[in-house]
Amino acid sequence: MMKIKKFGLLALGMLTIWNNISAQPRLGIPAKTLLKNAVLKAKKENKQVLLVAYSSTNAWSPFLQKVLNNPEVKPILSKNFVLCEINPKEPLKYRERENPDAKEVFDQYYIKTEGIPPYPAVILLDQNVKVLAQFSGGFTEGLADLSKLSDLLTKNKTFTFRDAEDLNRKVTALYKKIAPPAAQDIISQTVAIANKENKKAFIIFHASWCHWCHVLDTAMSQPSVRAFFDKKYAINHITVLESENHITDQNPGAKEIIKKYQGPDRIGIPYWIIIDKNGKFLADYNGYPDTADESTYKTFEKILRETGGATPSELEEIKRVFASIKSKF
Rank of each mutant, 00 (worst) to 15 (best):
M2Y: 07
I4E: 15
L12G: 14
L12K: 03
A23G: 12
R26N: 15
P30Y: 10
A31I: 03
L34D: 11
L34P: 04
N37M: 08
A38E: 12
V39E: 06
K41P: 00
A42S: 10
K44G: 06
E45C: 03
L51P: 00
V52W: 00
A53T: 04
Y54V: 00
S55D: 13
S61W: 04
S61I: 02
F63I: 00
L64E: 04
K66H: 02
K66W: 00
L68P: 05
N70C: 03
N70P: 02
I76K: 03
K79W: 03
N80Q: 08
E85V: 01
P88G: 02
E90G: 01
P91Y: 09
L92D: 13
K93V: 12
Y94M: 10
R95F: 10
R97W: 11
D101P: 01
A102S: 10
F106Q: 05
D107T: 09
Q108F: 06
Y110W: 15
Y110E: 09
E114S: 12
G115C: 11
I116P: 05
P120Y: 02
P120V: 01
P120R: 01
A121C: 11
V122P: 04
L124C: 09
L124A: 07
D126F: 04
L132T: 08
Q134G: 12
T140K: 14
T140L: 13
G142H: 08
G142C: 14
K148L: 15
K148C: 06
K148M: 13
L149A: 07
L149E: 11
D151G: 07
L152T: 11
L152C: 07
L153F: 08
F161S: 14
A164G: 10
D166L: 14
N168H: 09
I178G: 02
A179Q: 11
A182M: 02
D185G: 03
I186R: 00
S188E: 09
T190I: 07
I193E: 06
N198W: 08
K199E: 11
I204H: 05
H206E: 14
A207R: 02
S208F: 09
C210A: 12
H211S: 12
L216V: 12
L216H: 11
L216Y: 10
Q222F: 07
Q222G: 06
P223L: 14
S224W: 03
S224L: 12
A227C: 06
F228T: 09
K232G: 07
Y233S: 03
A234E: 07
N236T: 05
I238G: 07
V240M: 04
E244Q: 15
E244F: 13
H246G: 00
I247T: 08
T248Y: 00
Q250E: 15
G253P: 00
K255R: 15
K255M: 15
E256F: 04
K259C: 03
K259H: 11
Y261Q: 02
Q262G: 11
G263C: 07
R266S: 13
P270M: 05
Y271E: 05
W272Q: 10
I273G: 00
K277A: 10
D284G: 12
Y285N: 05
P289N: 06
D290G: 07
S295K: 13
T296Q: 15
T299M: 06
F300N: 02
E301T: 05
K302M: 04
L304H: 04
G309M: 13
T311C: 08
I318G: 11
R320Y: 13
V321G: 01
V321P: 01
S327F: 02
S327G: 10
